[in-house]
Simulated assay, not measured.
Amino acid sequence: MDFTMILPEECQSLIMSFTSPADAFRSAMVCQALRSAVDFDAVWEKFLPSDYKSIILGSSSPSSLLSLGMKELYLQLCFHPILLQNGTMSFQLEKGSGKKCYMLGARALSISWGDIPHHWTWTPQPDSRFPEVAELELVWWLEVKGRIETRILSPNTKYAAYLVFKLKIRFTAWFRERPVTLNVNVDGVVSGEGRRVSLDPRDEPRHVRERGDGWMEVEMGEFLNEFGDDGTVEFSLKEIDTRYIKRGLIIEGIEIRRNA
Rank of each mutant, 00 (worst) to 15 (best):
I152W: 05
L167M: 10
F130S: 01
V164G: 04
W174L: 04
P179T: 14
S63H: 13
G221P: 06
L83E: 05
L65P: 02
E255N: 06
E9Q: 14
M216G: 00
Y244Q: 05
H207P: 03
E239P: 10
Q92I: 03
H119C: 04
I116W: 04
F171A: 14
L57R: 02
G214A: 12
R170S: 11
E72P: 01
D213H: 11
L237I: 12
A260P: 02
Q85I: 06
P49T: 00
E177Y: 07
S61W: 13
G188E: 13
S154I: 09
A24S: 15
F171H: 14
M29V: 01
W174N: 04
D229I: 09
Q125F: 09
Y102E: 06
F165M: 08
L84F: 10
Q85E: 04
N185C: 14
D41N: 10
G221R: 14
D203W: 08
L77V: 08
A134M: 11
E255A: 12
R211S: 10
L75E: 14
A28E: 14
K145F: 07
R178Y: 15
L68M: 10
K166R: 15
L138F: 00
V30Q: 09
E177D: 07
Y52P: 00
G105Y: 09
A33Y: 10
S60A: 13
S154H: 03
V233H: 04
M5N: 13
G253R: 07
E204P: 07
C78L: 13
L48T: 00
S112D: 01
I15F: 05
G114A: 08
M16C: 00
F223Y: 13
L7M: 11
D2G: 02
R178F: 14
K46Q: 07
R151M: 07
E149Y: 11
F79M: 04
D230Y: 10
P126S: 08
A108F: 12
M1E: 12
G212D: 01
R257C: 11
D2I: 01
L249P: 02
T150V: 12
S128Q: 07
P81L: 13
G248H: 01
L104V: 04
T123F: 07
K145L: 05
E219T: 03
T242I: 15
L249E: 00
I111F: 02
S64K: 08
V190G: 03
K166D: 15
K53P: 00
E255K: 14
S191L: 07
A161N: 12
E210T: 05
V233F: 11
E149Q: 09
G98K: 12
I116T: 04
S27D: 11
V233R: 07
G194I: 08
K100N: 02
R151A: 09
M1Q: 12
F47A: 07
N183S: 10
I254Y: 10
D23Q: 12
R170C: 13
G105L: 08
F175L: 06
E137A: 01
D187V: 05
P117L: 11
F130K: 00
S61K: 15
L136M: 04
K95V: 06
V197R: 03
P131S: 07
M220G: 03
S27V: 11
S67T: 10
N185K: 12
F130M: 02
A37S: 15
